[in-house]
Design a protein around this nucleic acid. Structure first.
Lengths: 348, 348
DNA sequence: CTGAAAGCGCTTACAG
DNA sequence: CTGAAAGCGCTTACAG
């Protein structure tokens, strides 16, 4: 079945294509009668404007792209959901691409999106990203860009973040408050700002509370798709190296769950022997045993907010208004669960 | 920065647009020298063909759409990942839309994708979908369609499925084999074929093994975003109604995890008092306590296979070859974990 | 109130 | 080997 065009409607009604086009778009200079006729015919024939032609004429695709490190990930799934929901409200569709934490792939995905001429790009950077020239390329094409969660501070664009440092500080301070004296940290990779900030928050909390910072208590996890295994592995090492640890703040929940699993296996009591706090509040953390204390990171909201900023910028550029960049900081919350509640009535 | 066009390259080299276009696409009737010149210039200027114009000319967007009930879902995330990976290999981008299990939304999303003239559509149906006219509309526009996981048997298109009935049979038979005598079933909603098939598999296994089927042992869960809560709730009811149950086969892992949580809370020993088998093999199931036996459902593979079928159909239509529909059945596997291993050394 | 015409940037059948 | 021309289906400035 060939799609219906403006031309066909024009021929049927014996009027011009111009008038049909204007009638459908409710131009004021078309008579009511013509409008009615055109709209009726269009409806009958199930007319749908050819998006390709409209794109070409208007230089708009009503499509945005998003590049994230990994789709199968509780936090990013929520971000995606937030973005899609908000985009839909404004009539935008969303193309999703993965970087798999790789710098090279990230560059390639940007190229793909720019080739498609999406109206805007939303990104959370890969752990492997070592410089930001590729982001500047986006900016040079005048494509609106918003970074979220894993951002680059130096890039000139809008951003949506949480205060990783503060959140990590809160998590660590909580461990201190419940009486932990020797607190380890499983951090993320060296590059991304997030894991740096979380590390710094941890360190600051120690210093502010007169606990000497000991670098040997900091373990690095790549937070790849093997996070869970990494958590187990690091926990094993930690137990071997430092048997007097009584608390850990862990960069992300999945690693923390790996650590908990290892502790369970080795008969270490959490929280009584070691209290644990994770980061992100994956759904999983509320159902494992013991339930995991963590920092709630508002993924859905972050997606929503990111799209809103992008949309604003798209509109500003269309109207040739000056574009203003904004950095929105979303609030996080410490969720205290069994893994850091010393007074817990130990079941069983 | 205005994008470079063929025209500009033509002007710089003082040749025709036609020749530039052909040179870039390596047409055999362009001299080597011209090709070299054109390609060099294009590279220098960072020329990227205007996708909108190409789309309009070729009536292809090199974009496909996918509609799934829910993005934040371990199984569907994996499907998405598989689709994106495979699509990328063939130069296709992927637009993602959610139905939120709603029939109305599903129809709306189809409309959106057809308006965008995507080259093909991949779908897993909403629980709320009560008829399939909207799918036939897709077919009428000559847009290739592939259904996966939650399909409609009567719709004339390619499909990728698992044998839900057989898998459910295997799961239930396993419970019987480890000695369960009175086995309950938490099923999904009444409409989707999957939950019907899983229910039928459960029933068949009982019958084949001389265990009378008792409808009062079947509980319905909506499997919405409140699955976890539903699992707890149903477990509570089950314990109240039937205190002599010794096994449950549950429609999906998240509900099963809810049930396990409730059992833990009420001091019911799993698997010794009640053995539990779930469905889907969410990652979570391998880290909770006790770990959950389940049916492994190959999400990534399903995504990959679905795209492959779609791609084949896209190519067939382009070449005006007859289109052949295929139904691919992927294999599932019973993963036995602690929740159904009676001989387990109960840790403490 | 209506419509002829130009043009968005490509691709490709055809002529030379 | 090169290029003029038509056309994909729309939108919109302009003329009447």
């Amino acid at each position: 079945m060939k799609p219906v065009t403006l031309k066909e409607i024009a021929e049927i009604l014996d009027i011009s294509i111009t008038t049909v086009s204007k009638a459908l778009k409710d131009y004021p200079d078309v008579s009511k009668k013509t409008k009615r006729l055109v709209k009726e015919t269009a409806a009958t024939l199930n007319y749908k404007p050819n998006a390709f032609a409209v794109n070409l004429r208007t230089s708009e695709s009503k499509t945005i792209g998003i590049i994230i490190p990994e789709v199968v990930h509780h936090f990013f799934s929520n971000v995606i959901k937030g973005i899609i929901a908000q985009a839909e409200k404004k009539g935008y569709l969303v193309i999703i691409l993965q970087s798999n934490e790789s710098f090279e792939l990230e560059k390639k995905q940007i190229d793909l999106l720019l080739s498609k001429r999406v109206d805007g790009i939303l990104m959370s950077l890969a752990n492997g990203t070592v410089n930001f020239n590729h982001l500047n390329e986006i900016i040079e094409t005048d494509t609106p860009l918003v970074l979220f969660d894993k951002i680059a501070k130096v890039v000139k664009c809008s951003k949506v973040i949480i205060d990783d440092r503060k959140a990590a500080y809160t998590a660590t301070k909580h461990l201190i408050d419940i009486g932990c004296k020797k607190i380890a940290h499983f951090r993320g990779p060296l590059l991304p700002q997030n894991s740096i900030d979380r590390f710094l928050g941890y360190k600051q909390a120690l210093t502010d509370n007169n606990i000497p910072y000991d670098p040997s208590l900091v373990y690095i996890c790549n937070c790849s798709d093997k996070s869970f295994e990494e958590g187990k592995e690091s926990a094993r090492k930690l137990l071997k190296d430092h048997n007097d640890i009584d608390g850990i703040f862990i960069n992300t929940d999945l690693v923390a769950i790996g650590a908990l699993t290892e502790f369970n296996k080795q008969g270490i009591k959490v929280p009584d022997d070691i209290a644990v706090v994770g980061f992100s509040n994956w759904f999983m953390s509320s159902v494992i045993s013991p339930t995991l204390s963590t920092i709630d990171q508002p993924g859905y909201d972050m997606g929503k907010t990111s799209f809103k900023l992008l949309y604003k910028e798209i509109k500003q550029r269309k109207k040739k208004e000056p574009v203003t960049f904004k950095t929105v900081e979303l609030t996080t919350e410490l969720v205290v669960r069994e893994s850091s509640t010393k007074s817990i009535i130990v079941k069983n």
